[in-house]
Design a protein around this nucleic acid. Structure first.
Length: 232
DNA sequence: ATCCAGGCGTTAT
DNA sequence: ATAACGCATGGA
């Protein structure tokens, strides 16, 4: 059980390399010729150097990318930044029309504008308290289990395993889980099999998304999962 | 033109 | 409890 998940992790890491999630702006090295660095990835960096503003940006991105390509979510983040409202106070004080227009590329802009304001309010009210717990995040409108866990793992550095649609399809494919099982059941399977290692949890989820894009999209780029098929 | 991407809240079985 | 539905952009 444990060896299997760890084996898959190693295979994916070998195939795709370090993903460097979560992407954030503001750490880009303009002098670098490395495309990943210029796009704002913190490659191989799992320490906690992030200031409040980057923590917020990760959380905002987590909301914006719900059922949406990261590319579109990133466009929304760039728009917010361009408008000078990529901050809790900025979002709360922004005109609704301006906010909606800025995040338009991320789809569902009416809903997500409300979600971003709700999270901004939560973020400000938890400024000088301890890190939020899962239940705290789940109480915010627009923050469901996957989003809450992504925030905890990538913004707050808590060892929680993120379960997304790709995770269900991939590990359902090799028979390790029931794809339609409840979120917490699937998450429990991963967390019982893997030690609570933040760096590995961050990397594993990123690798699942990368691999999933190729073989487990509804319109896969690749034709046969040569990596996971040996775990059948 | 059609299909889908790093879900969530609400409403109906 | 769990399934169905609305949301509503940009790229392939």
């Amino acid at each position: 059980m444990k060896g299997k998940l760890k084996g898959i992790y190693k295979d994916l890491l070998k195939e795709y390399g370090h993903q460097g999630w979560w992407p954030v702006s503001g750490v880009a090295d303009k002098n670098s010729s490395d495309d990943l660095i210029q796009r704002g990835y913190h490659r191989k960096d799992y320490s906690i150097p992030k200031d409040r503003s980057q923590v917020f940006e990760i959380c905002a991105g987590a909301v914006l990318t719900q059922n949406t390509s990261w590319k579109n979510a990133e466009a929304a983040l760039n728009n917010l930044k361009q408008c000078g409202i990529l901050s809790p106070k900025g979002i709360l004080s922004s005109d609704s029309g301006v906010l909606c227009e800025a995040i338009r590329p991320a789809r569902y802009f009416n809903q997500k504008s409300v979600y971003l304001r709700a999270f901004s309010d939560f973020f400000i009210n938890s400024e000088n308290s301890l890190d939020p717990g899962r239940d705290d995040l789940l109480s915010v409108k627009g923050v469901g289990k996957e989003t809450a866990d992504a925030m905890l793992l990538y913004a707050y550095f808590k060892p929680v395993f993120v379960i997304d649609a790709y995770t269900r399809r991939m590990f359902g494919f090799i028979g390790m889980i029931d794809p339609k099982a409840p979120y917490d059941i699937i998450q429990e399977m991963f967390q019982k099999a893997l030690k609570p290692d933040i760096a590995i949890y961050q990397e594993y989820h990123a690798l699942i998304v990368e691999h999933g894009k190729y073989f487990y999209s509804k319109k896969p780029y690749g034709k046969g999962d040569y990596i996971l098929e040996r775990y059948l």
